[in-house]
Design a protein around this nucleic acid. Structure first.
Length: 413
DNA sequence: TCTGGGGTCCTAGGACCC
DNA sequence: TCTGGGGTCCTAGGACCC
């Protein structure tokens, strides 16, 4: 038996923990750059704020109905997520963190998994302030489906077994885990309108529409496990840092500064995981929503001489790539840096004819990075990152980092 | 005027090898 | 005019997830 614990409206719930007066009130959280609504309280959903709606399109609706709007505060959400997981771990020996707000737990061999799910939900709510829903099923996909029904019904916990056609028929085909918009259209055309219709399709049809991936989903819904628990997240293969700018950029100098910042952030992720990057890609794009403006987007990649975690080298290469794809005369909206083919720093392959960078440089880089990690940009930063950052993203309604920053800890009285 | 960010896997097709 | 068979590797694009 697999359990899926999923935090309800997670980002909104995090904000509410520190602003209890917002319980029962409509709340939304915006994506980076205050762009889209990416989390909505039930009250905001009821008012008709769609998932992913551009904020400028729903702003009037929000203002008229007193919706509380927040910029995203990922430091807070990440920390709260860790707290939820630490409570969940007490309830099962095997746990897979699937996303920032979801974990799978192995509930096999328990006499009363449902009772445990109820108690787990209650404990997480009491200890962290975050409401969760729990779905139970013989496979991950059925646990997901049960979770969706638990949320929809408001009961908080739900268990689904294979072969319960009446329950499966309550889940629309596009709400099945692994079926997105495209596949849903094609499945509807062959008569699979819901999960029940889907499992009664012949496997050959499923295979022809969605390949082996969709057939796995089909088998999982029949109660045949195809997706294992992954307790230890496999090492990442690529990592990306990209942002939309707070204002359009036209000049190379500003773009270089932004790209240098993304390069530094990306390589810090790589360093923190004990990895090295073997390649780097840079991309830029104009605002694709502006049909009245000339459009341009481009990307270029290169292989590094040797796997590296050195921000100086990564910045230099990123700027070279940027200069090779930059074209004057455009209004750039977004840029990004992708570090490719990450390998473990323990298994790096040496160069045939050369030695790795000297120890002095290495010591210097490590020292700067340590200072920056401990004290933030006040402690130190790479000059290429710039000072003004006039291009940085909008985040005008962000709450304090209550749980991770001494200066922003909540005050009482 | 304003429209997010970060990932994975699978497949088809092309380049290349003997 | 006729023009093999069997592989691997890489990449781009499409699908999905949160």
């Amino acid at each position: 038996m697999i359990a899926l614990a999923d935090c309800n409206n997670f980002y909104v719930s995090c904000e509410r923990v520190f602003r209890p007066h917002l319980h029962d009130r409509p709340v939304i959280v915006l994506s980076n750059n205050d762009g889209c609504a990416v989390a909505r309280s039930n009250e905001a959903k009821a008012l008709g704020v769609p998932m992913g709606a551009p904020y400028h399109q729903v702003r009037y609706l929000c203002e008229r109905n007193g919706v509380q709007v927040f910029s995203s505060n990922y430091e807070l959400y990440g920390d709260m997520s860790g707290r939820v997981v630490s409570v969940l771990r007490r309830f099962a020996s095997e746990l897979e963190v699937y996303s920032i707000d979801e974990s799978f737990l192995n509930f096999s061999g328990l006499s009363d998994p449902f009772a445990l799910a109820v108690s787990m939900r209650q404990t997480v709510g009491q200890w962290t302030g975050i409401p969760i829903s729990v779905g139970l099923g013989p496979t991950k996909t059925l646990a997901k489906l049960a979770n969706r029904l638990a949320k929809k019904s408001g009961s908080g916990c739900m268990q689904v077994e294979a072969g319960e056609d009446d329950i499966l028929s309550r889940v629309a085909i596009e709400d099945v885990w692994g079926v997105g918009r495209r596949l849903a259209v094609r499945l509807r055309r062959v008569g699979a309108l819901d999960a029940c219709g889907f499992i009664h399709l012949p496997p050959s049809v499923v295979r022809s529409i969605g390949g082996v991936t969709l057939e796995r989903t089909w088998r999982e819904l029949h109660g045949i496990p195809c997706l294992d628990m992954e307790e230890i997240a496999p090492a990442r293969k690529n990592t990306c840092c990209s942002r939309s700018f707070g204002k359009p950029l036209t000049g190379l100098a500003e773009l270089e500064e932004a790209v240098a910042n993304y390069a530094v952030r990306a390589i810090r992720k790589v360093r923190s995981e004990g990895s090295l990057a073997c390649g780097i890609q840079v991309f830029v794009m104009t605002n694709r929503f502006r049909e009245d403006q000339p459009q341009y987007s481009n990307a270029r990649a290169l292989a590094l001489d040797e796997p590296t975690d050195d921000p100086i080298r990564v910045i230099r290469r990123a700027k070279e790539l940027l200069r090779s794809i930059f074209r004057p005369g455009y209004s750039y909206k977004k840029a990004g840096v992708i570090l490719l083919d990450l390998v473990s720093s323990h298994s790096r392959q040496g160069l045939l004819f050369e030695e790795f960078g000297d120890d002095r440089t290495r010591g210097f880089v490590d020292a700067v990075e340590e200072v920056a990690a401990r004290y933030g940009p006040i402690g130190g930063f790479w000059a290429a990152q710039g000072i003004d950052k006039s291009w940085s993203m909008r985040r005008e309604m962000r709450t304090p980092r209550y749980t991770t920053n001494w200066l922003e800890i909540p005050e009482i009285g």
